[in-house]
Amino acid sequence: MTPQGIWRPSFFEEAVPIDSPITAAIQPSYKALIPPALIRRMSRGIKMGIFAAQQALDEAGVSTPEAIIVGTGLGCSEDSEKFLRTILDNDEQFLTPTSFIQSTHNTVAAQIALRLACQGYNFTYVNRSVSFESGMLDAMLQIHSGEVANVLVGGVDEISDHTYSLLQRIGYIKPDGVNESIKTSQTQGVNYAEGATFFLLSGERTAESYAELVDVHIINSVGEDEITATISGFLQGNGLTSHDIDIAILGINGDKAFDSYYFPVQEQLTNADVLYYKHLIGQYDSCSAFAPAVAATVAKHGAAQPILRWQGRPQRPVKNILLYNQYRGKDHSLLLVRTC
């Protein structure tokens, strides 16, 4: 679920870079998935999560996963704000429980489990821009150890008016009226959005498999001058060097102050075709969940769609794909994906 609409075969052909400070995800009809009474009551984050989760399960041909893991930076922000406003505006009186019930960070994972009657492992990570990657690491470890055969993992965040306007106030989000894309960005801050991206990870390669998730690395704090060494260490641990990476998918978001983290990486990965994706889906805490979807598509089709290319380098056969993301110089994540 993205500002470009839902995941579909023609997604990248139809995509148009966003250039507004805040862009909502285009909402589909939820009628086939969620009872009408609940559609009205649920926040967009819950609905987007349910929708994207079901899409991933459908693609994989799995009805009930063995585990559900969700990453979200701000959680169910819309309901939190709603409940908080009622407390503040009415001096702690005349409150109803619905928005409080739906305000807990684990609501999306819980609602997916409830819908699927899934009694397996159920987790929610809430650590800014590595919320989703924490989930990927957890899922990978459980599959590797043989605890589960498959895991539904996703990232979801929703726009909530007050919270996003505060992020604009402190310059994290570009001000209203500024219309810049990532490539034309001159002002402070970035273009924000919302969305949900889910994956079904499985221990077995199937006919539906897009690619293999090889490894995940999370590091809270690393200097700009240390990032290439960190990447070398990660690749080395997986028996690779920087020359082995065919595609690099970077979390470039147009923030002049912090995109500099990605510059030395582009130099380091000499053979990599460099891709970006946040120009299509915007920035939010769990937006990097979209990067493995890009990787999966490229792995399956053997080439990247033109709209994803940041830097034109000669393309070569795709085998190893490195994903790197950070936000404001913190919460760095590296994912290694391989064609299968």
Partner: peptide, 21 residues
């Protein structure tokens, strides 16, 4: 709060947070 604790203690590596009520 996790970031604050990590910084306060001097932890730079794996930092994450869980919220399951």
């Amino acid at each position: 709060s996790s970031h604050k604790i990590a910084d306060y203690l001097g932890i730079k590596g794996f930092v994450s947070t869980i919220s399951t009520a």
